Amino acid sequence: MTFRIKLGAALMAAAFANAAFAQAPATTPTRIRGEIVSQNGDTLKIHRRSGDTVSVDVKPDVRVSAVKTMQLSDIKPGTFIGTAATTGADGKLTATEVVVFPESARGTGEGHYAWDLGPKSSMTNANVDSVVQSTNGRDLKLSYKGGSNVVTVPPNVPIVTFTPAEHSDLTTGKKVFIVATPASQGSYVAQRVVVEKDGVVPPM
């Protein structure tokens, strides 16, 4: 298998991992955002942004990916993206992060739904129909099955795409975004992991 094929497969796996993050099943898994404070075999201790520390079991077969930075100018009509956004008092959406999907992952998690990144937060996975320069950044007109909306992306918002990572990248001090299921009080079993790599922190 060539490196190009391996990389493509890894990106596809990462993209489908994001689908798991975005699509809330009947029993919604827990999204864990925080920093690795210790490691014992397959078990990570994560200090969460909420202030508590939890144990997360990361089995050897769990997918691990990272993200790399992209530019706002990389988002063009026809790009498929996922963006978390907040709703202002005027009802307008302002992006807090953007994930650019590879073309092979078009349609991943498509739709518009609630998200837990902050108050009045939502997630939209959609096609970019148009990009218009505005005083606050760029306005993206997005369309998805069943609807459309406009999201303003300010210049300072993190814009990333997925890149391969290994379990060996899960080291103390790294920031992580983990989708996990509860196992017992204060402990979880990871389903998907996105880890900080080359200084780029998962923004989702």
Score class of each variant (00 low, 15 high):
Thr69Cys: 00
Ser168Phe: 02
Val100Lys: 08
Gln71Asn: 15
Asn125Met: 07
Val64Asn: 01
Ser134Gly: 13
Met204Lys: 09
Ser104His: 09
Lys174Asp: 04
Asn149Tyr: 02
Gly91Asp: 10
Gly118Ser: 10
Leu44Gln: 03
Ile75Phe: 06
Ala10Leu: 05
Thr43Leu: 07
Gly146Arg: 05
Phe80Cys: 07
Gly111Lys: 08
Leu11Asn: 01
Leu93Glu: 08
Leu117Asp: 13
Ile159Trp: 02
Ala15Phe: 07
Pro182Ala: 13
Gly173Met: 04
Val132Tyr: 02
Thr161Pro: 02
Val64Asp: 04
Ile5Trp: 14
Val189Leu: 08
Pro102Tyr: 02
Thr163His: 03
Thr69Gln: 12
Val160Tyr: 00
Val160Leu: 01
Pro77Gln: 13
Ser143Pro: 06
Ala66Asp: 06
Met12Ser: 13
Ala15Arg: 07
Val201Asn: 07
Phe21His: 12
Glu103Met: 12
Thr86Phe: 14
Lys145Glu: 10
Ala26Thr: 14
Arg33Asp: 06
Val176His: 00
Val98Gln: 00
Asn40Asp: 14
Val58Ser: 03
Ser187Phe: 06
Asp116Pro: 10
Asp129Tyr: 04
Lys6Glu: 14
Leu93Ile: 06
Ile5Met: 15
Phe16Pro: 04
Ala26Trp: 12
Val64Ala: 03
Phe3Ile: 14
Ala85Gln: 00
Glu103Ile: 14
Gln71Cys: 09
Asn136Arg: 14
Asn149Ile: 02
Leu7Gln: 11
Ala15His: 11
Pro25Val: 03
Gly147Met: 09
Gly8Tyr: 09
Gly109Asp: 05
Asn156Met: 14
Ala180Pro: 01
Asp52Phe: 09
Val98His: 05
Ala165Met: 01
Ala13Gln: 10
Lys120His: 13
Gln23Phe: 05
Ile5Glu: 15
Thr30Leu: 01
Thr87Ser: 10
Pro102Glu: 04
Gly146Glu: 06
Ser187Asn: 08
Pro25Gln: 03
Ser134Lys: 06
His112Ile: 12
Thr124Leu: 06
Arg63Ala: 15
Pro155Gln: 05
Ile36Leu: 07
Ala89Asn: 15
Ala165Lys: 03
Val67Gly: 06
Lys76Val: 15
Thr181Met: 09
Val100Asp: 05
Ala183Gly: 07
Ala19Ser: 11
Val200Cys: 04
Ser121Asn: 14
Val58Phe: 04
Thr53Glu: 11
Leu93Gly: 00
Leu44Trp: 01
Ala22Asn: 13
Ala66Pro: 09
Asp116His: 14
Ser168Met: 03
Gly118Arg: 07
Asn127Gln: 10
Asp52Met: 08
Pro29Ser: 03
Thr135Glu: 15
Val56Met: 02
Leu170Lys: 02
Ser65Cys: 12
Glu97Tyr: 08
Asp42Lys: 07
Leu117Thr: 15
Val58Ala: 02
Met204Pro: 09
Ser187Leu: 05
Ser38Leu: 01
Pro25Ala: 00
Asn40Lys: 15
Gln23Ala: 10
Ser148Asn: 08
Arg4His: 13
Val132Gly: 03
Arg49His: 13
Ala10His: 02
Met1Arg: 13
Leu117Ala: 15
Pro203Ser: 09
Asp74Trp: 11
Ser65Asp: 13
Asn127Trp: 12
Gly173Pro: 02
Gly146Phe: 04
Ile36Thr: 10
Gln39Met: 00
Thr69Ala: 13
Val176Thr: 05
Leu142Cys: 02
Tyr144Glu: 06
Pro60His: 04
Asp61Tyr: 08
Phe80Asn: 06
Thr86Ser: 15
Asp52Lys: 10
Ala183Leu: 13
Gln133Trp: 04
